[in-house]
Design a binder for these strands. Sequence first.
DNA 1: TTGTACGCGTTATCAA
DNA 2: TTGATAACGCGTACAA
Lengths: 345, 345
Amino acid sequence: MVTIKDIAREANVSFTAVSIVLGKRTTPGRVGEETRERINAVAARMGYSRNGLATNMRRGRTNLIAFVSNNISLEYTSRVLDGAAEAIDKNHYFLKLFTAEHPDTFRKSLERLLEQRPAGIILRGINPARMEVLADRAETRGIPLAFVENYHQESGVVNVFSDDILGMESVVEHLHGLGHRRIAHVSNGLDLGYGARRYQGFLQGMEKYGLVFDESLLFSGYYEVRPHDFVAFVDRIASGRLATAICVATDFEALTVMSILQSRGVKVPEEISVTGFADMGFCKNCYPALTTVRQPFEEMGAAAAAELIKVIRGQPFQARVEVPTELVVRDSSGAVGNATTAGRK
Amino acid sequence: MVTIKDIAREANVSFTAVSIVLGKRTTPGRVGEETRERINAVAARMGYSRNGLATNMRRGRTNLIAFVSNNISLEYTSRVLDGAAEAIDKNHYFLKLFTAEHPDTFRKSLERLLEQRPAGIILRGINPARMEVLADRAETRGIPLAFVENYHQESGVVNVFSDDILGMESVVEHLHGLGHRRIAHVSNGLDLGYGARRYQGFLQGMEKYGLVFDESLLFSGYYEVRPHDFVAFVDRIASGRLATAICVATDFEALTVMSILQSRGVKVPEEISVTGFADMGFCKNCYPALTTVRQPFEEMGAAAAAELIKVIRGQPFQARVEVPTELVVRDSSGAVGNATTAGRK
DNA sequence: TTGTACGCGTTATCAA
DNA sequence: TTGATAACGCGTACAA
């Protein structure tokens, strides 16, 4: 592997000059134009490539940002990761992925991570106990943390959220505009930060438009966890025509609600409208295409990375970022009583 | 930041001894038990943490494996990444994510990546031109490459695939068992490696069960690209009852096919069965739940990482890995003429 | 404008 | 069983 010394010898200059030229530093009053050119030429000819390891060591720090998450295969997280990766690359940092899957190896993996001296850490969807350990260890080392949608407790230097409350409000506004008055709500869990916020947005919307919410039209919990209760709830709404629309807090559960309705022969949206939240990939392919709220996952990841890098660089930054959401109207929501056939093309 | 020298001073030993103990090296006949204990105690008390940067520099190499891909937010890729991440962590390596999004910055980003001296690179779904540049640069540096489902051209040291051919064959077997004889095929593109392989598997299955395939029942192309042709094809199949089943090469397109059928009032699977390929997250939530073939994305990522690490370590490895697929029967496929209601629970 | 000396924290080699 | 010394490749004072 060719080093700056090799180049210095070959170009008949000191390796200091080479270091300055190849390190692209602009030390004031340093290295003449012709020397610079000769060095560049020799470096190119010899196929020189910086040894980033030595640079890191010399500087005592890296340009590594760790992205810590426990499951990156979920679209919610992979899109955040994607956004973060782009912002990180653009700022000439690197992204080191750290999936904290195994509870027993977590601490050891974490120590190994910290030994690599990351410049900052982005946290997304990690369980509270491990988060605390990590936050503590990182803090003692002065490594800044950025959280993406951490609803357990705001800590760290940067916190990024999506505006779920306004997003859910806009769903209610949309449904209200279509003539819906009795609207059910399926939450994925009111104890969860975002579940609570979406429910809050739902209630705010209802109130804003003078609608009363009957709490018997609320279901809280994942289909995966309580499938029978979930199905029974949808059945009760549908058979009793207790609501003309079901406002669901996640796309997956919304898809499940539609499936249950359709398996009972209930037409969506002609008889009951259904809405989701997140705008996952399948929303435009399923039948009927799902009306939902686009969560700006990529933007959230990018914002977390961008603010974190500002912190690292000692620049002024925004400690709390709330990225706006956007209503996406598709075919699963329709006017009340208006049996419009949801058409494709 | 406390270093081994600080500890040596505090423990009254040479920093060499500290290095050996804290570096967990087992140099034969080295450092007595009591010295070792004293060093460990002092290190713990002083809150020592290795400087991985210095270690990297000294060794001239890192324990970093780069994962290069152009879009990690797609479930296909994020699941591969997830599997790779776990295997990498287990082997005490780190995963550096490199998303090669921007064509103009690709080369520069690549150079910066190589300056960090990754021990190996995993490649997934990157465009051929960039792949070639990367493969060339990596090769001259002696960095081993592992490809995950690279159908353009087998190169690199390790190549991992999923067994699409057998997977698709098993779909035909399944449909044949349900009494289907006229089966249509929707491919996402026969020019694509996996598209071709799935089509091949489909044809093999048809032949195996003595079924003839009428090429007028073949559609090739993405819905996104040719929506009108896509819809027209499905309409033609459905209205003419040209087939009793549509075997689709991807889950997304399968979902789209079902949507089109349902929007025309055609019942799935009572009138036409539909199958997909990949087993994405939504397959069990959509209506009807999609019969598909599970692609072992996580296992593919893990295999690529595991073999690559063997290469790095100079151990014997498997250059070509074909991970088996698995048929997942759900509700979108049913017996011919048997109008069984696809029930939920 | 250029060159020299030194240090970053660790690991490896050699001598004791 | 231990300790001193020399690298690793680069960056930066400081001297020339």
